[in-house]
């Protein structure tokens, strides 16, 4: 490869090699985004109800008895959240497979025949993600809880943001390393991870990841523009159905865009690993 950006070109083309499988993973994404729209609407209902109760009874939120809240809505939100979490695990497992295929230089997209394995790999992926992000998240939460709105909080969030970025860059290589060896221990083998990055060159590594992120941002903004046109067109045709329109848009986005972007990003991550172990 003449230039490392060729990885990005290859990654952008990759999802088009098998549209059917992309739509397959797109269905999962569509499910998640439709569910999260519903969850958002229902939790807003619950929120509004509790604000109403607080205003009427002059109490605080924690004093409201559970029986006064809309129990049906709460169960619905919890149930849907659990479902979308499980679907999300499948998506993560699929990302794992895409990285695996990329490292193995397979031209095809991974299939869905091994459902249980997909779930297991998704859990592995999730554990690595959580492990890498836990320090900045804890720091940031502690900042909110203890420092409140003082200037200390700003410093703490800056440090947390910095740690978050470092964790993000390390995590990509960590996931690659885990996938390459098929063992979760390898995700925390920092020596090997930093060795791999150093092998490629830190500047080159950060550059290619940033470049990929910029490309993704450009595509999302462009898609956002097109989707907003579609939304306006829908809204002009259908009256007074904002919820339905937003769910339809969420499904379109999940089915085509989110699936494409995720597969693209995972493919590029795998290619970066392949370049780094040369």
């Amino acid at each position: 490869m003449a230039s490392i950006t060729d990885c990005v070109v290859e990654g952008l083309k990759y999802p088009f090699t098998n549209i059917k499988k992309i739509l397959g993973i797109g269905v999962l994404f569509a499910l998640v985004s439709a569910l999260s729209t519903v969850i958002g609407i229902k939790s807003f209902d619950i929120f509004r109800m509790s604000i109403h109760l607080v205003e009427n009874t002059n109490s605080t939120v924690s004093q409201i008895p559970f029986s006064q809240l809309p129990a049906g809505n709460i169960y619905l939100v919890v149930g849907l959240s659990v479902i979308s979490f499980i679907v999300g695990l499948f998506i993560l497992g699929y990302q794992y497979d895409v990285v695996k295929f990329s490292i193995d230089r397979k031209a095809d997209l991974p299939g869905f025949n091994d459902i249980a394995g997909l779930l297991v790999r998704g859990i592995k992926y999730l554990i690595v993600t959580v492990a890498y992000y836990i320090i900045p998240v804890i720091l940031w939460t502690a900042g909110i809880a203890f420092a409140g709105d003082s200037s200390v909080f700003i410093i703490v969030s800056l440090i947390a943001g910095l740690l978050f970025i470092i964790a993000y860059f390390l995590m990509i290589m960590a996931v690659n390393n885990m996938v390459a060896y098929g063992s979760i221990k390898k995700a925390f083998d920092f020596r090997e991870i930093t060795d791999n990055i150093a092998n490629l060159g830190w500047g080159k590594y950060i550059g290619i990841v940033l470049f990929t992120v910029i490309v993704m941002m450009i595509i999302s903004v462009a898609v956002g523009i097109i989707l907003s046109f579609i939304t306006v067109a829908f809204a002009a045709v259908i009256n007074n159905q904002a919820v339905i329109i937003s769910i339809v848009i969420a499904i379109i986005e999940g089915l085509f865009i989110d699936s494409y972007m995720t597969v693209f990003f995972s493919r590029v991550c795998g290619s970066i690993y392949r370049e780094s172990i040369k």
């Binding site: 950006t5 990005v8 070109v9 952008l12 083309k13 470049f211 910029i214 490309v215 450009i218």
Partner: peptide, 13 residues
């Protein structure tokens, strides 16, 4: 077109 797009992004960056 995809390669053209990536080249364009590089130039703009």
């Amino acid at each position: 077109l995809i390669e053209m797009f990536i080249d364009g992004v590089k130039v703009v960056i």
